Amino acid sequence: MPALNVVSVVTPVHSGAVRFLPDAYASLFAQDLPGGWSWEWCVQEDGSDVGAQSCLPAGDPRIRISASRAGGPHVARTMAFARSTGAYVKTLDADDQLTPGTLARDLAVLEEDASVGWTTSRVVDLLEDGSTVSFESSDPQPGRLPRGSAFGFWTEHHRPQVHPATLCVRRSLLALLGGWMALPASGDTGLLLGLDALADGWFIGGTGLAYRKHGGQITAHPDHRSGAEWEARMSLIREHAEAIRAWADTRVQPPPEPGP
């Protein structure tokens, strides 16, 4: 059974990003939660000799560090989820930072309306000099994201309308999907579209994440947006989402009328 009044923050980290963990921790430590709520931070080392423990305080029992065989960030996220206990699961990449009040806003939406399965929020870029900048985005209006709307936008533009690095998810939905798609990249987009196939989401208009821009991130790789790997990733993400949508549609259809 999930732990009541706990939100699990899951963070994959490899050796190249471990230096960013203190900033991620500081942003998590500064979060104010509703009365009776707490967070746990499940940090998953992607491979051996990552050294996350050396960068984080030893005296905070909410930090839970473990390691698994190298499989990429989406496998590491799923392994962190496997160790988590919270009723809600929040993603936070090692090189990113939560903005003040993010967890409280996520919890307020999910606790208020049981029909909302997941939340996302606005993002700003965090530059190497420490400044943040807004960018022209396709953010929807704050509020409910009807089931299927994320897939419709992605189908037209081949990119998500909302940023999957800001997801906060009901544990039962994440378990149903088996965590993140085990892809070298875009596994979080695959998860977003899977969630969108199952339940309404909610877009929080306030900024929820400072997304660090640096040369070592996966999105800077030349194969990220074109080529054979990109085509295979997009094809599987589409097939995955369409299969879940078809299954979900059969679950919500009314039963047939009885015969004469």
Rank of each mutant, 00 (worst) to 15 (best):
W39F: 06
E40Q: 08
E40I: 03
C42A: 10
V43T: 09
Q44P: 01
Q44S: 03
E45F: 05
E45S: 07
E45G: 03
E45M: 05
D46T: 08
D46A: 08
D46S: 06
G47D: 03
G47T: 07
G47P: 00
S48C: 11
D49C: 11
D49Y: 13
D49L: 11
V50F: 09
G51Y: 01
G51V: 08
G51P: 01
A52D: 06
A52G: 08
A52Q: 06
A52C: 11
Q53Y: 12
Q53K: 10
S54R: 14
S54H: 12
C55W: 15
C55R: 15
C55V: 13
C55I: 13
A58H: 12
A58N: 10
G59R: 01
D60Y: 05
D60F: 05
D60R: 05
P61Y: 05
P61E: 09
R62H: 13
R62Y: 11
R62E: 04
I63R: 02
R64H: 13
R64Q: 15
S66M: 09
S66W: 10
A67Y: 04
A67L: 04
S68P: 03
R69F: 15
R69S: 15
R69D: 15
R69V: 14
R69P: 12
G71L: 09
G71P: 04
G72Q: 12
G72D: 14
G72L: 13
P73W: 00
V75W: 05
A76Y: 13
R77P: 00
R77A: 02
R77E: 03
T78I: 11
A80T: 09
A80Y: 08
F81K: 06
F81G: 03
A82S: 12
A82C: 09
S84N: 10
S84H: 08
S84G: 05
T85D: 06
T85S: 09
T85A: 06
T85R: 06
G86N: 01
A87S: 13
Y88C: 02
Y88I: 00
V89S: 00
V89T: 05
K90L: 10
K90N: 09
T91I: 10
A94L: 06
D95C: 11
D95A: 13
D96Y: 04
Q97N: 13
Q97C: 14
T99G: 07
P100T: 04
P100V: 02
